[in-house]
Design a protein around this nucleic acid. Structure first.
Lengths: 213, 213
DNA sequence: GTTTGTGAATAGTTTCACAGCA
DNA sequence: TGCTGTGAAACTATTCACAAAC
């Protein structure tokens, strides 16, 4: 089933598979099966096989998947093989945590620039990154930065997004609890922490298949 | 179309609608339409109408939706009307940011307990919350706490989840980059910040439309 | 005239079950 | 024999278009 449109849900799961494969690889495992990987990450084995089938040429029937080739293949599909630089805007509580967050490196990301509006923070360093004045946010694409991370208060997030797009950013990870409008060709992924938590009580209290009125 | 099973995707969107409705309400607006709300949050108007139709009795044809009744209705469906206490485990960079995070209050959440393993942190307060010894994590349900937030390193997250479940927790918000196994009746929602970022380069180079959440 | 609510059509995703290869 | 890869079936969600309500 090669040469097909890739389902969005498949793209969403690929990083999960990559995470699991990296975990096994770090543990010294050289090859795996759809069953082993599935059990590790909490999905079903056919889901993994189906997802990989959209790309073709992942495993060997009767044997399984070679981990290092699986990892490099998924990295290639997700365009993670080259490494990516990101600019962070907003060095408050959350922004500072993101600067110190080790997990970005798992997928080859690095925050190489940070911006804030607060005069007391500008010029200082946090986790090795110089905090620059948001007002002097110039072209970022010339600095090799193509991704932006927005960690400013809700009221400022659209302005910050506009500035980042103007600076040449093509992808945004938005932590502010607000929809952000961007031109075509720019992709936004929003993480609203509180909103994800807001789904829990629904699932916790009555269970899912209940009827309403 | 009342008396139906509610699609998971609808449940996922309800907090988005609630966020938008609260935003309008704070701005002094008393009533809205599916079109206005849709434009604000970046979805299509029929999506909102369809989602609300599973529950019935939201709006008035020709008029629109009364905001305060919409808000209380969605709060009721999501069980957010009573307020919820949560326990945080792991007061590192991310955990500290979560303790200070004002957004939880939007949906009626409050972190009323915090735990860590680090002797130097135990006994201190952060954002008004006493940091307790993780080793002395007893029954939380008796303290009115039914939700847990996991912000510990990957290696510890499953153990922490087990301890929280034993303490009577029914819903978990997991920030560690790992699948967490829980007994039936407990719901886990995992936020892997780096993994969401990992989807961006794929969409950036493919050049696609925007995603809401 | 305006806006909701919803059946029906379309599109997309999950799940099965098994052919085929190592 | 063991495990992958994948058509086809079953299921779920999105989108349309319009009747009904104000």
């Amino acid at each position: 089933m090669r040469y097909h449109k890739i389902p969005d849900e498949t793209v969403r799961r690929l990083p999960v598979y990559l995470r699991g494969a990296l975990h096994l690889s770090r543990g010294g495992v050289a090859s795996t099966s759809s069953k082993q990987l599935a059990d590790l990450i909490g999905v079903e084995s056919w889901q993994i096989r189906k997802d990989f089938s959209y790309f073709g040429d992942f495993g060997t029937p009767g044997v399984g998947y070679n981990l290092s080739s699986l990892i490099s293949r998924v990295n290639q599909i997700l365009r993670l093989n080259t490494g990516h630089k990101a600019a962070l805007v907003g060095v408050g509580n959350l922004g500072s945590a993101l600067l110190a967050f080790p997990g970005f490196r798992t997928y080859g990301f690095e925050i190489t620039a940070a911006f804030d509006i607060d005069r007391r923070k500008i010029g200082r360093r946090k986790a090795g990154v110089l905090i620059e004045d948001i007002a002097s946010l110039g072209l970022l694409s010339t600095r090799g930065i193509h991704l932006g991370i927005i960690a400013v208060p809700e009221a400022a997030s659209q302005d910050v997004a506009n500035a980042l797009v103007k600076a040449g950013i093509k992808g945004l990870l938005n932590f502010s609890p607000r929809y952000i409008a961007v031109p075509r060709g720019v992709k936004v992924i929003t993480i609203d922490i509180a909103m994800d938590l807001a789904r829990l009580p629904y699932y916790v209290s009555a269970g899912r298949a209940v009827e309403y009125r």
